[in-house]
């Protein structure tokens, strides 16, 4: 049995993040940490330490799938773990992220009004106005709704993958994982050239 470290409990933070979004949407901003920390680690240390140690979401899927035995534990189909799907999914995710930033900008510039909805799987708009309790600038709230939509959508996709395949099947297609691995591969190639 391996010794537990403080970072083995980061799944609590990830769960808390998802729960807090039901009470106050502005907590969604904290999710930016899950975007910047992995990128900064890969950029500066050239490792995937975030995925390997600190990813609370991965830990959560591990607990649900392995400890609670919710996963079918079957291998993923080849097309789902292929390079082209991984990078196409990353590109799709980045486009959707860009669209979310554009919506935020439209609200910021007064072109459109704040929409108090959480959009799941890029299609289903759920009214979420109850979680908008602290009045802030409309664009700040718009970003929070958009970002929480991204986080909730990816969690749902991860849960589906966890149920159908291996507990951490999400890690195979995770856009952040793909991005950080690309950074690491790039850094490694540069290092080998020198």
């Amino acid at each position: 049995m391996k010794r537990k470290h403080w970072y083995d409990y980061l799944w609590v933070i990830s769960s808390l993040y998802l729960i807090l979004g039901f009470f106050n949407i502005l907590f969604a901003w904290l999710g930016l940490l899950c975007f910047f920390i992995p990128l900064l680690i890969s950029l500066f240390s050239g490792t995937k330490a975030y995925c390997n140690r600190y990813c609370g979401r991965g830990q959560l899927f591990g607990i649900l799938g392995e400890k609670l035995k919710l996963s079918r534990n079957k291998p993923m189909p080849n097309w789902l773990k292929s390079h082209w799907f991984r990078y196409a999914f990353l590109a799709f995710f980045l486009v959707m992220f860009g669209q979310m930033l554009y919506t935020t900008w439209l609200v910021f510039s007064g072109v459109t009004d704040l929409k108090q909805v959480v959009t799941l799987l890029w299609s289903f708009r759920l009214p979420w106005s109850w979680a908008y309790t602290t009045p802030v600038a409309p664009w700040v709230a718009q970003f929070a709704f958009g970002f929480y939509s991204v986080m909730l959508t990816s969690t749902i996709l991860g849960l589906i993958l966890m149920l159908l395949y291996k507990p951490r099947a999400w890690c195979v297609v995770c856009p952040m994982g793909s991005m950080t691995q690309l950074v690491c591969k790039g850094k490694c190639a540069i290092k080998n050239q020198k």
């Binding site: 390997n52 991965g58 195979v172 690491c184 850094k187 490694c188």
Partner: peptide, 24 residues
């Protein structure tokens, strides 16, 4: 070539025989 360097293998290895050098 297919490895996504997620670290699941590294985590469960009882002998600490797996590493992910340079995150590749």
């Amino acid at each position: 070539k297919q490895c996504v360097a997620c670290g699941c293998c590294m985590k469960v290895c009882p002998r600490s025989a797996i590493t992910i050098p340079n995150g590749v």
